[in-house]
Amino acid sequence: METHLPEALSAYLRDSRVALAIASAEDDNPLLFVNQAFCTLTGYDADDVLGRNCRMLQRQATNEEARARLREFLAQPRQANVRTPIVNFRKDGTPFVNLLYMSRLRGTDGTVRFMFASQFDVSRSQPDLLADYDEQLAATLGRLAPIAGDAGIVVEGTLLAIANTAATVAQAKIMLDDLNRADHE
């Protein structure tokens, strides 16, 4: 399993304000890197999550549709990326709806070297905050590509189509409401 991220790539990811994670492309996709924004969002320290699959954030949530989309992405090597809302839990047990974006990072030889993921809490967000996140993520991907390229890594796919902001926020609120209702039954 490759665990070494090129230093320029690590530095860029570390300094991003967007919650980012890098996982191995092998085995069960254990996390190799999370930045401070990820730790702030989830409440977990890097030591809590490194070496574990990010699905640990789902706890008891069913996430059937999101899981199906993620399984499809992982099973389809030609699918460039996936973006889906998914119920996650912070370390303290507080649920939130994570707008998860994932793509593959390939070596110049075409081999998938890493999985790249970005997270954003849309559960209590306003559409303008999500639009700001979309802009930040698009900028992150735009700046990531040449840095990764210098390290011999190709960022697969780009964020060409941003999901309808209002619909994404509405879907997140429904998911959180369903989760809260299930907790009180």
Rank of each mutant, 00 (worst) to 15 (best):
T62H: 12
N63V: 04
N63C: 10
N63D: 11
N63E: 11
N63R: 03
E64M: 09
E64H: 12
E64T: 14
E65L: 14
A66T: 07
R67G: 12
A68R: 13
R69G: 07
L70V: 15
R71T: 14
E72Q: 13
E72V: 06
F73W: 11
F73V: 06
L74I: 13
A75E: 09
A75Q: 13
A75C: 10
R78M: 10
Q79K: 15
A80K: 11
A80W: 03
A80E: 13
V82K: 01
V82A: 05
R83A: 14
R83N: 11
R83P: 00
R83F: 05
T84F: 07
T84D: 01
T84L: 06
P85L: 00
P85C: 04
I86Y: 04
I86Q: 02
I86S: 02
I86H: 02
V87T: 14
V87M: 15
V87H: 01
N88Q: 07
F89R: 11
F89D: 00
F89K: 03
R90G: 02
K91W: 01
K91D: 01
T94S: 12
P95E: 10
F96Y: 15
V97E: 00
N98G: 08
N98C: 11
L99W: 09
L99V: 11
L99G: 03
L100D: 03
L100I: 06
M102W: 03
S103D: 08
S103R: 05
R104K: 15
R104I: 07
L105W: 11
L105K: 08
R106L: 14
R106S: 13
G107K: 12
T108I: 08
T108Y: 05
D109L: 05
D109E: 08
D109P: 06
D109I: 08
D109K: 08
G110N: 05
T111N: 10
T111F: 06
V112L: 03
V112W: 04
V112R: 05
R113E: 14
F114L: 05
M115Y: 12
F116P: 01
F116S: 01
A117C: 08
A117W: 05
S118P: 00
S118V: 03
Q119Y: 12
F120T: 04
F120I: 09
